[in-house]
Amino acid sequence: MTFRTPRIAPSEITPPEVFFNRRTLLAGALAAGASSLLPAAETAPSGAKLQYTRNAQYSVSEAPNKYEEITGYNNYYEFGTDKEDPKANSGSFRPTPWSVAVGGEAGVKGTFTLEDILKPHPLEERIYRFRCVEAWSMVIPWVGFPLSALIERFKPTAKAKYVEFTTLYDPHRMPGQRERVLAWPYVEGLRMDEAMHPLALMVVGLYGQTLPNQDGAPLRLIVPWKYGFKSIKAIVKINFTEKQPNTTWNLSAPQEYGFYANVNPQVDHPRWSQATERHIGAAFLAARRPTLPFNGYAEQVAGLYKGMDLRRYY
């Protein structure tokens, strides 16, 4: 597929903070004459505005989902197993201060503050498709920087064949971790060539603002051609390994969730079909769409898997 300039540029969409506060803004305008000390609205997304450029080359042409869909319908078991739980239970989570430990087969190792991690990287906005293994999908305007640029700074050695990511483990701050529904902490990983692919994105923002807690603040991965569970959230550890990492969903049900987890309409989940998906927020009776190989990114990434049996390495 080719990437066209979006029909609706994100900049043309009402910014969420304006949209969600339209009544307050209206009330504010009306009340402006009476009082210029109107308190700031509190329903606005709490994110800070980010400086970024738009990367049209890596953006799809579909219109993005609404902010409230992307932040109100999440699989993030660290904050509960229902889709509404992460939003409801992550309000008091503080993603600052934050640090990331880098280790394994790398020349540069150590613990880095989030500021250290982000500093050299100019941010860009990319509108990616997002396909969950549960057969629903969204289109999301992420803000971030290429994972490859980050990895290069750590100078992985020749032995580094894989990169492993770990989510924060802190049951006090992440109440979902008090239940052992998964083997905490959450671990995900990529083969080195997958991680170095220009589409693999380290994400710090959504809709031009810092990432909301329920979407993986302050730092998450997005691998748009893989099922959503590969795109690990709230990363505190990056480890370069020679062996394929043991990843959380793969450990929990190996026959259902593979290490690769590339979006593939031809390889069904044992309990449901992956041939089609339902697009969240689509019109009545127009939500079910065919799923595309590699989630529509086949042209860019299929080469990574040349000669591999994708039925076996699902």
């Binding site: 309990r271 449901w272 009776l285």
Partner: peptide, 21 residues
């Protein structure tokens, strides 16, 4: 059948035949 599968009977029969649940 109507809202989820959007009346796609092919998928319905495939689901009934292939998916134990």
């Amino acid at each position: 059948l109507v809202l989820d599968l959007e009346l796609n009977f092919g998928t319905l029969f495939a689901d009934i035949a292939k998916r134990p649940y």
